[in-house]
Design a protein around this nucleic acid. Structure first.
Lengths: 110, 110
DNA sequence: CTGTCGTATTGACATCTGTCGATCTATTGC
DNA sequence: GCAATAGATCGACAGATGTCAATACGACAG
């Protein structure tokens, strides 16, 4: 069934990920939770796709207040998904490729 | 900075994902949120790595009550990450590879 | 039909979360 | 120093969430 997708469900390939240890689960879940809000997910995708982005450039496309944007950037930063470099009055946010790779790996087989 | 990891932040490779449309953000965020709880993440990894699993086999490794497990399986199912097939008194849960692939794709470049 | 077993649902509770207005901090320009 | 601006923090509030005890539902065994 559903062998059309290329991801067959027979033999070795039925395994998508390996069981996650209790200790590893918390930080991983933290990162997934950070992407678990629609606004924050779009916020992250904007930063990750446009390179370093100023916070001021995020208010309009997301239609949220300044404190809300600040709240979300903080959440993403604490999850290790983005880092902010302060330059004068501005903060330039950029994604952390290594962290994203960790999430992708957790969703991969083996 | 951090060009040691191999994932350079220059040129084309600074792009990890493409901006996510507002319409696409909600279902995607729903799935990420489903993985955003440590218990639920481990629950999913157990199902995904062990093939079809009976609910009764999940209580002990997760050290949670039966209603809590049922609550989490329901959440994962509504997020499209697992499906349950009822066989007599038991329910056999298995992961949905296509859905996992969607999440992995959202975290990939291009 | 009756009791048992695996799950789902309900109700309740404490905690967490997303949001915004108001305010504070820090930096730039004059 | 003073006003303006970018961002962070605080306080508040409605709504969502994780958890469990109690209960209901459905299937099987006798």
């Amino acid at each position: 069934m559903e062998t059309k997708t290329g991801t067959t469900t027979e033999g070795c390939c039925s395994v998508l990920v390996q069981p996650i240890d209790t200790a590893d689960a918390e930080p991983l879940a933290r990162a997934f939770a950070a992407l678990g809000d629609p606004v924050r997910l779009r916020l992250f995708s904007l930063i990750a796709s446009s390179g370093p982005v100023c916070s001021c450039d995020l208010l309009e496309p997301l239609s949220k207040s300044q404190p809300t944007i600040s709240h979300h950037t903080k959440a993403l930063a604490e999850a290790g998904l983005i880092v902010g470099e302060k330059q004068g009055r501005w903060v330039w946010w950029s994604a952390v490729p290594r962290r994203v790779e960790e999430l992708r790996a957790a969703l991969s087989a083996r």
